[in-house]
Design a protein around this nucleic acid. Structure first.
Lengths: 238, 238
DNA sequence: CGATTGCTTGATACCTCTCAACCCAGGTGG
DNA sequence: CCACCTGGGTTGAGAGGTATCAAGCAATCG
């Protein structure tokens, strides 16, 4: 009854303990002052994760949350048969691992080597109890995550393969310096699992877009937009 | 390049003004006291919407949010070519229409005739600025919505047609008095647009589950679970 | 009644998955 | 140094699942 799927292992079931670097506390606090998520006057611990390392697993106690300093993180869930769905990617200055419940609902893994700052969840609760601005930001963060996830559902529920890939490219263009040349720090597998497709289909859609002169594949990971209008036409979000 | 789709009209583009019933203010407030979303000591206005009436449209100013008193509401978005994706259904005591931005990101429509209580967004902000418990609940609400939406993404991204239908049935079983007999107050179209499928496929999956003695179709809308274990096996969420 | 709406079923098309082969770059070790 | 291996990516052939198009049935409604 259920679809046949090649079983692939949960990447790096083993996990090294978090590397704490107490000396960088002050540094982390200074960085927090004026970033995209606003003031967050909580002590954070800097830690490093190598590529593909699990940061936390689904169901573990969610006592801390993280902010990305450098690198990229993915949150994802696994089905019994190994199918993986990536919920979101997080880049520098973005926060992940904040939960409504006591446990993490998703796993988090390092897409690339990365540096994270971890904060105790409790201190945020305490702080937001006293500081309205913090409470407000917490709500705002949750609502933005909700909005992002709703867009994702629309894409997965109603988008064709090309449309999903186009939306993905446009989404990542904003992280690029040159808005017409995107460098993807992700494997085809990560892209596929984010878009609910297979690696082969993602590859084929890239090739197809390239044949149609919508994009140009400088390398497998470097993409130049040749026909932004056509790409936008394919983007079913907005 | 884009998929061919039958164009269907945005249901009821016209919209009647909200019917206010000032006399029921106190009543609404009393109801609020001890419901699932906790204390919400804000004045609400009771309004009624007939089946398929638009409650608000994507992009409109989000000055109020709603709580369902009776009936069912759907929030959804439309693609340019008419494809619709339903994000969520809301039943009695559930809240919808709370936004991070100034506009509604989705449309809301009455699945059945329904009675809603509307609250001004501003008063909630003012209240949560003074009352930490309210602020906390607001965050909790947003995070639960986020979690629900993430589950939905997983279902749409990695679930097969049967799996989606099975998950849908299990999700709705909790709203049923008898946990083995679900009465669906939704059309096949609503189900299909929620699950990212077509009406025909939804219908076929129901028939298939019925043939396999997993469920029994008492009527098109009344379903008895005959093999809960098999149904749970198909449910890829948890 | 005829018309409409919701639902089901069948035949067929088409899109994406599956399985397989191949290429390429990078790393390893004899 | 080169043979070998590995992992990421691309491409092709074929299978399979879902969409599309069409028809028919039952219930509701004017």
């Amino acid at each position: 009854m259920s679809k046949k799927v090649a079983i692939f292992a949960h990447p790096l079931a083993a996990r090294v303990p978090v590397v704490f670097a107490p000396d960088s506390w002050a540094q982390a606090m200074a960085k927090d002052r004026a970033d995209a998520y606003g003031v967050l006057p909580i002590k954070g611990l800097v830690s490093h994760f190598v590529q593909d390392r699990e940061i936390y697993g689904e169901g573990e106690e969610a006592s801390v949350f993280f902010k990305v300093a450098t690198g990229i993180v993915r949150t994802c869930s696994y089905l019994r048969d190994g199918r993986r769905q990536i919920d979101a990617f997080y880049v520098a200055s973005q926060v992940f691992g904040l939960e409504a419940s006591l446990q993490y609902r998703l796993s988090a893994e390092a897409v690339s080597d990365c540096t994270l700052i971890s904060y105790p969840r409790r201190s945020l609760d305490l702080l937001s109890a006293k500081n309205y601005a913090v409470a407000r930001q917490l709500t705002s963060y949750a609502m933005q995550s909700m909005a992002r996830s709703q867009d994702h559902s629309l894409l997965l529920g109603r988008g064709t393969a090309v449309e999903r890939v186009a939306a993905f490219l446009i989404e990542w263009a904003q992280y690029s310096r040159d808005s017409r040349t995107v460098t993807l720090p992700l494997t085809r597998r990560d892209i596929a699992d984010y878009l609910g497709l297979t690696v082969e289909t993602v590859s084929r859609m890239f090739s197809q877009l390239s044949r149609n002169a919508v994009i140009e594949l400088l390398t497998a990971r470097q993409i130049r937009f040749k026909d932004v209008a056509a790409l936008r036409e394919l983007n079913c979000l907005d």
